[in-house]
């Protein structure tokens, strides 16, 4: 097993005719993922072709889902229209909407997240690298790659990885793969202040997934999502967890205003988060080069 997506997951791509969407749709097809539909309003009826794979394009997400059985959408729609694209997935009752788009207005996300309450569609992102469940083929080929992560760095295995940041996820994945340890699923939840799936949501899924034996959780300064997850881990998680927090040297107040510091409280800084990680029994990576080793200190593989 894996979490959220697997080798047979049928994927649709919103924005498949744009440069960004097309490029990554091709890379997903090359990786062996099941890209079964594209959505571009006004281009319904056309076909997206790559290496002999023909992907039909639809005007709406609902049509695409109905006619191809797609259950997950990868969203590459430009920022002004991205929240709308997310809500279209909700209306079509998809399992998962993965919003890769960077730069969506916060107000749009506040409203979209509120509108998703009580609906079955789960959101990952926005401003995220997406997720990968590695395949069993050469260089993990045949897996499910949704988003922009490089497929080949992965290896099918037993470690779950969750992170806000793209390249930092790749760093952790590559360290694991180089040491011979594969991943069950790698999830990039995105760096925006308002996002769909949290660290904790993913940790809970990993905890329940029989294939996942150990977890790497990568966080950053700001907000309290990592702290929330760490406290849950201490009380509930059955599996060894390693963690890393980026931003120990980031200057205060560059992203957050003064009143933000009140809301976030004292648990906002890297120092505070690392301290809480330790208190919660998480093996802390001292540096980003140490992420896989930090896990291997508490898990034999």
């Amino acid at each position: 097993m894996s979490i959220l997506v697997h080798e047979k997951t049928r994927i649709l791509v919103q924005g498949i005719t744009g440069d960004f969407g097309a490029r990554h749709a091709r890379l997903s097809i090359d990786y062996g993922s099941q890209v079964v539909a594209g959505v571009t309003p006004g281009k319904g009826g056309q076909t997206f072709e790559h290496n002999g794979v023909k992907v039909p394009i639809f005007n709406t997400v609902a049509d695409a889902a109905k006619q191809t059985g797609a259950t997950v959408s990868a969203i590459f729609v430009p920022p002004p229209f991205a929240a709308d694209a997310i809500l279209e997935c909700v209306e079509a009752d998809l399992d998962l909407a993965v919003a890769i788009t960077e730069g969506i207005p916060v107000r749009d996300m506040i409203r979209a997240k509120r509108a998703m309450q009580g609906k079955r569609t789960r959101l990952i992102g926005p401003n995220c690298p997406g997720l990968v469940t590695p395949g069993r083929g050469d260089k993990s080929h045949g897996g499910c790659r949704i988003g922009i992560a490089p497929g080949y760095i992965h290896k099918r295995g037993k470690v779950g990885v969750v992170s806000r940041s793209g390249t930092l996820t790749y760093e952790a994945v590559w360290q694991l793969t180089c040491k011979g340890h594969g991943q069950s699923t790698c999830v990039g939840i995105g760096g925006d202040p308002v996002n769909g799936t949290s660290h904790l949501d993913v940790i809970k899924l990993f905890n329940e997934d029989p294939e996942t034996e150990a977890i790497i959780m990568i966080g950053e300064i700001g907000g309290n999502a990592e702290v929330e997850a760490a406290r849950w881990i201490k009380a509930n998680c059955k599996k060894p967890v390693a963690g890393f927090i980026a931003g120990a040297t980031a200057p205060a107040g560059r992203r957050m205003g003064h009143a933000g510091a009140v809301i976030g409280g004292a648990e906002d800084t890297a120092e505070a988060k690392i301290k809480i990680f330790r208190e919660c029994g998480i093996s802390v990576a001292e540096t980003p080069s140490d992420m896989a080793d930090a896990l291997l200190r508490v898990w034999r593989g």
């Binding site: 806000r164 793209g166 390249t167 950053e220 890393f244 040297t249």
Partner: peptide, 27 residues
């Protein structure tokens, strides 16, 4: 780009990796 007070410049791809590159220099 955000200027800081130190003397080792870094050039990185990705915000998370850029932040943690600053961290590892300090480490």
């Amino acid at each position: 780009y955000i200027a800081l007070d130190g003397n080792i410049a870094c050039l990185v791809n990705g915000a998370g990796l850029a932040m943690s590159t600053m961290d590892i220099i300090q480490h």
